[in-house]
Design a protein around this nucleic acid. Structure first.
Lengths: 344, 344
DNA sequence: CCTCTCTGTGTACACGTGTTCAGAGCGCCA
DNA sequence: TGGCGCTCTGAACACGTGTACACAGAGAGG
């Protein structure tokens, strides 16, 4: 293993190799233009650089190139940042995909500080990052528009309405929900409830659209009181409470489609509590394919969403926008897959 | 809202304010030395800077100050980066705490690329980050030692053996495990099994130490066959398999302490499958206080670990080392808390 | 022999900032 | 009026890099 010299500039390499700094730079970056370098000089420079453990100063390079070679990642503050608030398994997967994209493109990933768009815009203006990746913006409009106003590439990891001129990558929320509800209809269910998330969020309204499309296709009429909204955070206890509310109806549902697996876990608990057998008395479907879903009692039927792939695709799209291989707002919808287990 | 000018240098501010660049820098950074600035000039500069939405160029500042004002975060590749591999809830909490620390100290957080220490060392030498935070190093020795060889501040988020000269922050694994097992002994259990993680990892060996200490204190003799190792990944199915193995013993245990909550979930499933009532026939304790633990059937007794606080403390320690407020390897052990629920 | 192309190298500048140092203006005292 | 201290400002440099440009040498064609 070569001795690593912490402070070692390209001038040091040039001196040690008996050449000039310009030649060192040309050899290491390969950007000769139309200029060529003798094979002997190139080999000598490479050898010396490796021996001295040379690493180019990132700040100097960024300053010269007017590019940070980095993307900023804006995590959803409300869900992941408060102490005691659990994160969904999706975050780790998103991160994995994003880092994977960064690895293969030589881009660095920087976590954006603060909870308001101002700090993120500062990062852009300060040329600390070349673009921003926003995971699940909650207060969609003002936040995203604030970022777009800075005039830099932005990709949202959540499908956005067409009138917001932003690029995004997401799974097919509508199609996934439709498939889940159609599956229930095919098993003979006519009273299918939907436990949705906070009203007004994009994901929630997309999944409810899929729910309604499936009802239409199956010839089932939409009933207001079969749709209940679980308050944030949409987790296990909220799912249990939502089912209890549904069971108080004069004609309770025989099947429940949940906006998220975590809600479905609560539904399973509350069903057992109420003496209902799953799936005989009540069928349950979730959304996400949380790894815990396969280990519920009974194992949960759900819609699989590829978080890792979405993270990777979103980062790739952002980098394409930065390097202007893609122009203007672009979007990508990833397919989802219905995973049938024993809860239906 | 002020019109944000994307490219706007301190020279622009100086010209607009009718002064020089040096004065602008002095006003904005406050570092006058013994020099003072007239109140009128200061106000004019601040107003112009705000109007033009000035953000200092990060690269230029870093180059001048010889400091990146950023820390690198090394995520455990094996657990979080592969597609399909779920992350533990702890990661989101860790990140929350780390970002929180970054917010309050004006440090940025950069995700380290690659899976080998080389790329991380490059980040250090290239002055892209001032220090590294390592989450759960798996192949402890070579990895950490490789980072330390670079001569930069490093903090591990996992307790390390004393002979490795690295700083670390962790919860009290020994104390948490001891408390959990003592709790079982106090409830009258004498045959207490331990389902541990992969042999050789630091966390696993610390928790088994706590287990043995508790047995000693309770006057129970250690029995080899009551300790089973769940293979990686230590999740629900592995927990179920471990319990099945324990139940095949001539004298099966009446209580099980699990290295992680995820394993305990599997134990609960397998117990129900075997017709055992929890806690009457089998008592179960986990470790982590995963948010799902409270919603198991029955709710799981477990050891709460403050991941958010650990992330925050680790980042703070790293920043103290960078700014040389703390010298040499330092370490911090955070307390754990036994949460008694219905599984014991 | 002169000019012209081609190859390989080095010099010099720009990127935007923080900070040192010299100096301008001004009031005060001898 | 000259000298001196005090307050505030601006010119100049360094940080380490990528690259446009000039240049030296050599070979070839007129």
């Amino acid at each position: 293993m070569s001795k690593s010299r912490p402070n070692c500039t390209s001038l040091d390499i040039a001196r040690a190799a008996g050449t000039s700094r310009a030649t060192v730079s040309r050899v290491l970056n390969g950007t000769n233009g139309h200029i060529s370098i003798s094979e002997e000089t190139r080999a000598r420079v490479l050898r010396v650089a490796a021996e001295m453990g040379y690493a180019p100063n990132a700040a100097a390079r960024q300053l010269r190139m007017r590019r940070a070679q980095a993307i900023g990642l804006i995590l959803p503050p409300s869900r992941y940042r408060r102490p005691g608030q659990p994160g969904t398994f999706g975050l780790a997967q998103f991160l994995g995909g994003i880092i994977d994209a960064g690895d293969s493109t030589e881009y660095n990933i920087m976590l954006a500080p603060g909870t308001s768009p101002e700090r993120a815009v500062q990062m852009l203006h300060g040329k600390q990052v070349d673009g921003l990746l926003v995971i699940h913006p909650l207060e969609t409009d003002p936040y995203i528009r604030g970022l777009l106003a800075a005039g830099a590439p932005v990709v949202s990891m959540c499908q956005m309405p067409a009138e917001v001129p932003v690029s995004w990558v997401d799974f097919d929320n509508v199609g996934g929900a439709r498939a889940a509800v159609l599956h229930l209809a095919q098993r003979g269910h006519r009273r299918i409830a939907f436990i949705c998330g906070m009203a007004g969020t994009m994901v929630s309204s997309l999944r409810i659209r899929g729910y309604r499309e499936a009802l239409d296709l199956a010839g089932i009429s939409f009933q207001e009181d079969l749709v209940v909204s679980a308050p944030e955070p949409t987790r296990t206890p909220q799912g249990a409470a939502a089912l209890r509310q549904l069971l108080r109806l004069p004609e309770p549902p025989t099947a429940v489609f949940c906006y998220r697996d975590q809600l479905a876990f609560g539904v399973l608990l509350a069903a057992r509590e109420a003496g209902l057998r799953v799936p005989q008395d009540l069928a349950v479907v979730g959304f996400d394919d949380d790894p815990a879903s396969a280990h519920q009692d009974p194992p949960l039927t759900t819609v699989r969403a590829d978080f890792f792939g979405a993270g990777r695709e979103a980062a790739m799209l952002l980098i394409d926008l930065i390097e202007e291989r893609t122009l203007g707002p672009a979007s990508k919808l990833l397919p989802t897959e219905l995973i049938v287990r024993d809860s239906t």
